[in-house]
Design a protein around this nucleic acid. Structure first.
Lengths: 215, 215
DNA sequence: GCATATTTGTCCGTATGTATA
DNA sequence: CTATACATACGGACAAATATG
């Protein structure tokens, strides 16, 4: 198996993106070390890995805290997503056929989840849809970047009340984009994706403001 | 100042991108630790940071080595650069005026360096030109990504013989792009940049192959 | 504002496993 | 196959910075 620091980081990443460790929580080297059965040195290495993905914040001489993405973070994440995902759409012609099927499969999954009101599942499928859009570029680095960005976004979502309000309005637009891609209308798909991400960004920022205001 | 691990990583990054530590070099925890006056624990933390930027490769139970970017790496780097830099070009209208000046300044610098046959300087200015293109998106994350990609590319360049052959053919095309941007012809600038990066990628891959073959 | 307790930052020693000569 | 060298991981130690009463 991989080394301990990597495993520890993976485990913590999962805990964070699933909301078990909420933003603002302090991750004590001592306490977490004994809880996870690793030494402080190893845990510190894991912290470096997570800090690089912006899931935790390292405040010198104070410790590491689960990150609370700001409005500026959200806006920036959507800006980068727009750059990377539209690049995937533009690269559709050069991508193998299986890559497009991954896109349509994710859309179908999201629709199936929505059918039975499984909004957590719909959210996961939604993120997979966008990951699949980026994967059309056939670029390992774009895949890595996008995975990190979506994990960070998921972290922003965990404090928000309704996953349904965040995802439901966009499911039929996923289908629209997938259909445009299947029809080879990449320019139209790019336009739609661009507007889609702008709207989604506004929705998320609005939800964030709602919970930041009355705090 | 910042913590020791960060400083150590920064110092090593500089050594690597400037060719003092050439690809393939093994970075021994013990030897480097005493040489830089830091403990093995701290050095390992620094290694994690560098490995994330792909400047070094961590081979389990064998150690860390200065990375030797493969042809696939080069191609991928140019694919991501295309996505990020063209996104900057498309975002020109929304960028503050100073950002465009940073682009034209970098072009002027590169031309001045070429005038006096300072090809190392021209190479640096060239990279700054591309960083400035990405900065048009006004996205901190794109800036970070691009800086990492260009550092990795610089690592690929250090083993190549002539910086002149790598950069000179593209200087006048930098000027072309800058002029198109100044004229507000973003669509034309994007097309030109796209072809530019394709050609540059081919040039670098060709040079890489030349030195890989007769090894 | 001060004294104290806690926590991080850094280093060292060491036992174990793995790769290589 | 053995021996050596090294990475991996742990635990302990102490100074420095921070938080707490």
């Amino acid at each position: 198996m991989a080394n301990t620091a990597q495993r520890t980081a993976d485990l913590l990443r999962e805990r964070i993106t699933q909301g078990a460790l909420t933003p603002g929580t302090r991750l004590s080297e001592e306490a977490l070390g004994v809880a996870m059965g690793v030494s402080r040195n190893t845990l510190r290495e894991a912290f470096r890995l997570l800090a690089h993905g912006r899931l935790v914040e390292h405040e010198p001489n104070r410790g590491v805290f689960v990150r609370r993405p700001s409005a500026a973070d959200i806006a920036d994440i959507y800006a980068v997503r727009t750059a990377l995902e539209t690049a995937g759409v533009r690269a559709l012609a050069a991508a193998p056929a299986g890559h497009l099927r991954a896109v349509t499969d994710a859309v179908a999954d999201a629709e199936a989840c929505a059918e039975i009101a499984d909004w957590a599942g719909a959210g996961t499928a939604d993120l997979r849809f966008h990951q699949a859009l980026g994967a059309l570029s056939c670029s390992p680095r774009i895949d890595t970047y996008l995975a990190g960005l979506l994990a960070e976004l998921r972290l922003a979502f965990v404090t928000m009340p309704s996953q349904q309000l965040l995802h439901e309005p966009f499911l039929h637009r996923n289908r629209t984009i997938a259909d445009l891609l299947t029809a080879g209308r990449t320019a139209d798909a790019e336009d739609e994706l661009h507007r889609y991400l702008q709207d989604a960004c506004r929705t998320v920022l609005g939800t964030l403001q709602l919970q930041e205001g009355p705090r």
